[in-house]
Design a protein around this nucleic acid. Structure first.
Length: 659
DNA sequence: TACATACAC
DNA sequence: TATGGTGTATGTA
């Protein structure tokens, strides 16, 4: 922990400056201290969506922001956002204090306040080496992202002239806008009336935003068609959402380009091997034998790109004209980022070499990294970290400032290979007796927003509706849960949650049962909030599913298993690929698929080669690094690095093939 | 386990 | 007038 934080004069002053901003945020005065005006002026950046969405380059952001701010001014929602913003400011100040304390203490030891960073960088070297070395060597990861999916689906069946007008899906809340609307700043998650204002004012009254009601059946149908087309290239693709899919086309490319097979022949081969692979590993292993010689032909990257292009064309044809964009890279984080670069209807390739990867990611805003949102962006900015290169440059600082998981994630991001932060909720066909807990889903929930100020009876009625709806879904999916959570959003947008785990032997699925629990809980919440209990949303969530118990109880391997579980199966498969090519043992693509199919991925002991979590685990982690720094600074000893090195392998090699 | 946050689509 | 729903992960107590 940060230990005792010494309140230095300058820091106190800075804290106060933040407090002062509470009164009026938005365009409040810039932070008082010269250190690095962290908080205030970027307040709006957190409140307004600062991220440049595809199709919004070069628009008049100041006018857009101005209109949004004007329209939102004084709303309860905006007050809530400002509160959140202030909380982030406080966090930033705390981090700055922590840093100042560190610099101070290290300076007292060494007189050079920044030498600890160099020591930290040194300690990170082996970890970085390991990561860079185990990086996948081919760019066969593809992220396919439909262009303005919902709105494009809608426009498909309407007069083409509509496409030239600003359109969106959604009424009160916009879910997607077309590229014409985006040029007016109209985007997903924006309230409808603000979209209206933007179009009206920025077109000088010449245009109006057209709203089209959403039709999820349509999008779902189209999504299935899309997946069908894509699955020819990777039968094990991951559909992350209706409009996004993650593929590894390595196997396809090897056969199609490497061996010169016809598309049809490749598709047939891939399909036959993949389906069995889910259940019948041994069978697949046998087939692997046949494929032994074929591993990884050196396929030119432009040939891979051509395959992607062809694939996108097939999607377009299959859907009757929907376009998509794609990113092609050596891992899914890069592919995801790349998929956005040439939107709409474009693709981007990132080569696999370390150099190419860094040239691609380092100039990007940190916000482009999937997993870095508005809050993290703001915190990083406060420390003058704006682009990914800064993230790398300041890696020691980052390791010091953030908690292990975040630090680890950020380090990897700075090298262009972060966790993919995708947890595929495996939407596709649920196979035989999948009790759906087998799908890896962790929770299920329903929530409903309504106008605040309902009577107590009305509230309870709403709550019952939500319970029944949730119960129905759980019955359909054959889910039984142990824990139930009530979510209440007050008219102030403050959110309260209350959870209860049922006594042993009692499971939740039945609606009446849930209603009993939830109404009691709601009553308690109401009592705790005497007087002011105006509610705008009620939600119920069930988690802790029955049948998930026996799955994860390998106590000894907490660190590893945790890493693996946060590591998307997709990437797990890549790790194994890399590992196998890195050593002499050749693992075939088929086996890779097996990994891929094992959504739990618990067994993949090979992941160890890229696991850095153990370097940062409780005893051996950053604390160790800190020890090292201290030693380094004190007597410039060097053997601690050694210790850091040797910590891992023994611990890791005993990862059981659990299951 | 309980609660709050951040993040993604 | 007025800002969604579903799901996961992480941190802290």
């Amino acid at each position: 922990d940060s230990g005792s934080v010494v309140p230095y004069p300058s820091l106190v002053a800075q804290s106060e400056s933040t407090q002062r901003n509470t009164s009026k945020s938005g365009s409040a005065s810039t932070a008082a201290m010269g250190t690095s005006s962290s908080s205030s002026s970027s307040a709006s950046a957190l409140i307004i969506s600062a991220c440049d969405k595809a199709g919004m380059e070069g628009i008049d952001r100041t006018r857009v922001d101005e209109i949004i701010m004007r329209e939102s001014a004084g709303s309860v929602y905006m007050k809530q956002q400002q509160k959140r913003d202030q909380n982030v400011n406080v966090k930033i100040d705390e981090l700055k204090q922590k840093l100042a304390a560190k610099d101070y203490s290290m300076a007292s030891i060494n007189s050079n306040a920044t030498s600890w960073r160099r020591a930290g960088e040194h300690a990170l070297e082996p970890i970085i080496d390991e990561l860079v070395q185990s990086r996948p060597r081919r760019s066969t990861c593809v992220v396919v992202d439909m262009d303005g999916f919902y709105i494009s689906c809608e426009l498909l069946s309407r007069p083409p002239e509509l496409g030239n007008l600003p359109c969106c899906v959604g009424g009160n809340m916009i879910t997607t806008s077309n590229y014409v609307a985006r040029r007016y700043g109209v985007r997903a998650a924006m309230p409808g009336w603000i979209g209206d204002k933007l179009v009206e004012e920025l077109s000088n009254g010449k245009e109006r935003l057209i709203h089209i009601p959403s039709n999820f059946d349509l999008y779902t149908r189209k999504a299935h068609i899309i997946r069908g087309a894509l699955a020819e290239y990777d039968p094990n693709l991951r559909a992350y959402s209706l409009d996004e899919a993650y593929l590894d086309i390595g196997p396809y490319v090897d056969l199609r380009v490497g061996r010169g097979w016809s598309h049809e022949r490749v598709v047939a081969t891939l399909a036959s091997t993949s389906k069995h692979s889910c259940e019948d590993k041994e069978h697949v292993d046998e087939e692997v034998g046949n494929e032994e010689e074929f591993i990884h032909c050196n396929v030119d990257i432009s040939a891979i790109a051509a395959v992607v292009k062809e694939m996108r064309e097939k999607v377009k044809v299959a859907t009757g004209g929907l376009t998509c964009s794609a990113g092609l890279a050596s891992n899914f984080m890069l592919a995801k980022i790349a998929s956005d670069q040439n939107k709409p209807n474009g693709q981007k390739v990132v080569g696999p070499s370390h150099k190419e990867v860094l040239e691609f990611v380092h100039p990007l805003s940190v916000r482009k990294v999937p997993g870095i949102g508005r809050v993290m962006e703001k915190m990083l900015n406060a420390f003058d970290i704006h682009i990914v290169h800064d993230l790398y440059k300041e890696r020691a600082l980052v390791q010091f400032l953030f908690k292990p998981a975040s630090a680890r994630f950020l380090l990897r991001a700075s090298l262009g290979w972060s966790n993919d932060s995708l947890d595929p909720s495996a939407p596709e066909d649920d196979e035989v007796g999948s009790s759906s807990s087998a799908s890896g889903q962790k929770g299920i929930s329903k929530e409903r927003t309504f106008s605040a100020g309902k009577s107590w009876e009305e509230l309870n009625s709403k709550l019952e509706d939500v319970c029944r709806s949730l119960s129905q879904s759980m019955v359909e999916k054959n889910i039984k849960a142990h824990t139930i959570t009530l979510k209440v959003k007050l008219h102030t947008f403050d959110v309260i949650t209350r959870a209860k785990t049922m006594p042993r032997g009692i499971v939740l699925q039945n609606a009446d049962q849930m209603i009993v629990e939830m109404t009691e809980m709601l009553l308690n919440v109401k009592r705790q909030h005497k007087g002011t209990f105006s509610v705008r949303l009620l939600g119920v969530r069930c988690s802790n599913f029955q049948g998930d118990e026996e799955r994860s109880q390998d106590s000894g391997q907490m660190d590893i298993s945790k890493f693996i579980s946060t590591c998307s199966p997709i990437r797990a498969s890549h790790n194994s690929l890399v590992h196998s090519t890195g050593t002499t043992k050749m693992t075939s693509r088929i086996e890779k698929k097996v990994d891929f199919a094992q959504k739990g991925a618990q067994t993949d002991a090979q992941v160890k080669n890229t696991d850095i979590s153990s370097f940062f685990s409780k005893e051996k982690g950053w604390n160790k690094v800190e020890e090292f720094e201290t030693a380094q600074v004190l007597d410039s000893g060097t053997n601690s690095t050694h210790a850091l090195h040797s910590v891992d392998p023994g611990n890791v090699s005993s990862v059981p093939a659990s299951r």
